[in-house]
Nucleic acid binder design. Sequence first.
DNA 1: AGGATAAATTCATCCGGCAAACTAAATTGA
DNA 2: TCAATTTAGTTTGCCGGATGAATTTATCCT
Lengths: 402, 402
Amino acid sequence: MPTPEPRDPSRVARQAQMRDQNLGVVLRGIVDAAEPLSRAQLAASEDLARATVSGLVDHLIEARLVRELDPTQTQRAGRPAVPLAPARGTVAGVGMEVNVDYLGVRALDLAGDVLAEHVELDDLRGADAADVLDRLAALAEPVIEGLRSAGVRVAGTALALPGLVDRVTGPLRVAPNLGWRDVDVVGVVSAHPALHAFPPRVANEANLAARAEAHARRGSPSFAYVSGEVGIGGAIVLDGEIFPGRHGWSGEIGHIVVDAFRGPRASDGSLEALAGQDAMLRAAGLPSTAGLDVLLDALATGDLRATAAVAQAARALGVALASVANVVDVGEVVLGGTFGQLFDHVHDEVSARLDELVIFAPWSPLTVSPARAGQYPAMTGGALAALARVLADPAEWLRSQS
Amino acid sequence: MPTPEPRDPSRVARQAQMRDQNLGVVLRGIVDAAEPLSRAQLAASEDLARATVSGLVDHLIEARLVRELDPTQTQRAGRPAVPLAPARGTVAGVGMEVNVDYLGVRALDLAGDVLAEHVELDDLRGADAADVLDRLAALAEPVIEGLRSAGVRVAGTALALPGLVDRVTGPLRVAPNLGWRDVDVVGVVSAHPALHAFPPRVANEANLAARAEAHARRGSPSFAYVSGEVGIGGAIVLDGEIFPGRHGWSGEIGHIVVDAFRGPRASDGSLEALAGQDAMLRAAGLPSTAGLDVLLDALATGDLRATAAVAQAARALGVALASVANVVDVGEVVLGGTFGQLFDHVHDEVSARLDELVIFAPWSPLTVSPARAGQYPAMTGGALAALARVLADPAEWLRSQS
DNA sequence: AGGATAAATTCATCCGGCAAACTAAATTGA
DNA sequence: TCAATTTAGTTTGCCGGATGAATTTATCCT
């Protein structure tokens, strides 16, 4: 018999999966809701029978993933509804990040509350990868131990890095601005005892930051996210989901070439070469050791070179984002990191380039907005990514816990 | 009560849907198989019980979507398997296309066989939209009538256009190379009696051509497709599915800007402006009325201007495709239309630019290959798109038929 | 011819969602 | 004050569909 290659069986329906799947639907319904829903409201909105929802909710409460709130004082007739909300402090996702200027850890629970957080500022350019990762683990270990001893189940960890990470096999391929190449990140980090049981899911910093941004904007938005740090990263979010590509290598907006004929090498015309932090500082006549604050000060005083430098960068950014919009048909652009801080200085130019170049702009205007996920969004995104495992299939996760 | 907005209930599992869903799984298993599978093989590969598969297959056979082949002469002991194949000539998808140089119709059945086809060559630049669409309908009507009188159920029709089509509301927004704007395509076409029952699903020519290409390459490939006709269109295919974007406006590769500072308007540096057919002919010193054949002849004779023109275009193409790869993480590029015919003259340059510019190229090399979906791929893709409705949910489609 | 082997079908079982009936807890109104 | 009304949540019997074991069918092998 010619053994047929096994197809992805995930799409076949079996009754055993039915309950698991609906458990996830109900849990996500509760977690994603803008305001607490009752069992009856959930049944209506998900189009399930009230009896079915009740059973599933009981299961979720028993598993400490959901809690009942006190009945609200409505002025309506009838038995008051019991509002349901994600449980607090019962499950945690741990997000970690190593970036050029800092490293840190943040733990969130299902309610989105920060349970723990530690950040160390430091210039890590060229630092030894193993040393830095050990420092990170030393930061994360007490956090994880603290959570566990408080009875919080750790759903997993995720680590954001400013570079190219292989989603499948784990190693960091290259992080140019750290000067790292081919680092077995997972191996080093999970060598530490507390992290051994929770090997981090490693991902690109911009992708995780975009996840936090999608979470901060409720309602499954679609947008292109730009994370301007020292380099320029990016991510595509579609219906609230980050678009991973085959290997998790999507969204490398910094490598879009907007000026192919500028230098001998086409990469001389990449967005990062034209609008990266170093390029902007150089064009503004500032030392490349200066931080973004110096540039912002110069802009505030109306410095002409700084203004021109940022305008030029904004043009390149707008052109690159127009290409992204033309290729993936997103209608919103979110500027994070550096570009979030420069938002007022780049918005008009970026917006103008999008209106000019995106073919569908006349029928579906594009919007440009600043990131609103707060500080260190990739750490938040990493924690959310870890929690997403629970939300994606709570039944499976609960089985794996016992 | 604050009425909660209805969430998408498609993900909740109910037993009534279970059978429908598995019917689709089995049908797609049969249609997508490289070689005919038996019930037992299907059960193994889909991880369903043999009893379940048998029941579903019987249903599909009764519905004339699947047929049993004669048992093959294997040299093995045991009862011989009954191979299953998609039925032939029982259901048809009808693909239609209006392009700059031709218009036509093609009908396919579930087996992928061409049941009918008509193409008319004509220069339609600037032609009146209503006239052209009437001609198309006149071409399609006898095809549909013929199918129906032969007992073939028409699953639907699709119409490929070289322009921007709104997926939701139907109208053609703009087709620059035809000179059309805001045409109610569906209205005009389905005014014709035979087409009234089958209003076309309208889509971009490149997107449908890419669908045909994905079908021609079995096994759910991922690639960026470039359709070089008079303009330059494109599409993104991920795991065999064309990536639609929000409105079906994805893949507009021709509008990627690779040279933002070339002219006063950034769009002067778009791929289409630099590597479109007119641009290549002009750069080669040929009249813009010349066809591609003239350019190919010039290349064959080693004409220097032609060679340089194509090299320049290939550089722009490679740079644009590198941006696409960096943003959506696809590992393969397929060149169709004009660029398919120019494949030997552009491959090396495109490949070199991809290797140079795509950040993940060192770890996952990119391949560049010519399209193999045959002539008029968008017509094939349209027919496949119409048939996809049947494959996506055969139970639902069968109910809609009776 | 009889045993071995594999495909396909039959059948009893079980699981889980569903609708309806029922209970619970509030407001309304006479 | 108390019954009627209204809405939330639970209990219960039912039903559809997947399942695995047993059975039937059809071939190969010795």
